[in-house]
């Protein structure tokens, strides 16, 4: 009897160990699946307010920059060796800067997407693809990859100005404000654009709320001034005892 009870106890312990192992394995699989689907890089996520939830970032984001960091104009060299200066700060439209290279595997999908005429850019943003300088790139390969009608510039300075951590990387600039609207990276350009679109929507929503708050504050100030004027016109000055009379006394006459 004692032997049987002992055997049962051993089997029970083994079963418990098996269940614990299975649960741990299950948790690992779930975590991996989550990362593959829409995993969030802890370094990227909290960085930029509305634009922070980048789907599966490939590269670490530049640290310490705020969502409204100042933008920079872009000066570089075009595919036909022309000198190019593009006005980004103060431009009447937003500019979408897509930082790519000819060698990175993820960039392939971006180059392809940029050539798709159905590609929808946020708002009426101007598109600008930026690769590194000619001496750091393969100009012939860039020439082959560049879709017709898309402006491509060799401009390492822009990579430095925008603290681009690697490619692919996308930055959306608010032209009139001269500040960044959002930035990030993902497996596909469409994912990034979706993310930036949400960030833009969030930004617009915040601007509307701020405007409403401003309207309310202005209305309060106007109302206060009107009441003050009416009281002064009636001879009621600051500190007048009638201002501190209990309401029921006033009603009672």
């Amino acid at each position: 009897m004692t032997v049987l009870v002992g055997l049962e106890a051993v089997v029970l312990v083994l079963l418990c160990l098996l269940v614990a192992g299975l649960l741990r394995s299950h948790a690992t699989i779930l975590r991996r699946l989550h990362e593959l689907d829409a995993g969030l890089d802890a370094e990227v996520a909290p960085r930029r307010g509305g634009a922070s939830r980048a789907p599966r970032p490939q590269i670490p984001a530049p640290g310490g920059r705020r969502a409204t960091a100042p933008a920079h104009d872009v000066v570089g060299v075009g595919l036909d060796e022309e000198a190019v200066a593009v006005r980004v700060v103060g431009a009447p439209t937003d500019t979408l800067l897509v930082f790519l290279s000819s060698g990175c595997s993820t960039c392939g999908a971006y180059w392809e997407a940029l050539g798709d005429p159905r590609l929808a850019l946020p708002g009426d943003a101007r598109l600008l693809v930026i690769v590194r300088d000619v001496n750091e790139e393969h100009p012939a390969l860039v020439q082959e990859l560049a879709p017709a009608g898309v402006q491509v510039l060799h401009a390492t300075t822009a990579w430095n100005d925008y603290e681009v951590p690697g490619s692919p990387y996308v930055v959306l600039v608010d032209g009139e404000a001269g500040r960044l609207r959002g930035e990030g990276t993902a497996a596909t350009l469409e994912q990034v654009l979706s993310m930036l679109g949400r960030a833009s929507d969030d930004g617009a929503h915040r601007a509307r709320l701020d405007a409403r708050r401003g309207d309310k504050a202005a209305a309060d100030a106007t109302r206060e001034a009107t009441v003050d004027d009416e009281l002064l016109a009636a001879g009621v000055r600051p500190g007048d005892p009638s201002l501190y009379r209990p309401v029921d006394e006033e009603v009672g006459g």
């Binding site: 036909d80 000198a83 006005r87």
Partner: peptide, 23 residues
């Protein structure tokens, strides 16, 4: 913003952008 190339250099005023290429 300074645009320079092919023997020309231009300090672009606000609002302006440009290219210097060859034909």
């Amino acid at each position: 913003m300074r645009l320079a190339g092919h023997g020309l250099a231009i300090d672009l005023p606000a609002r302006w952008e440009g290219t210097i290429g060859r034909r």
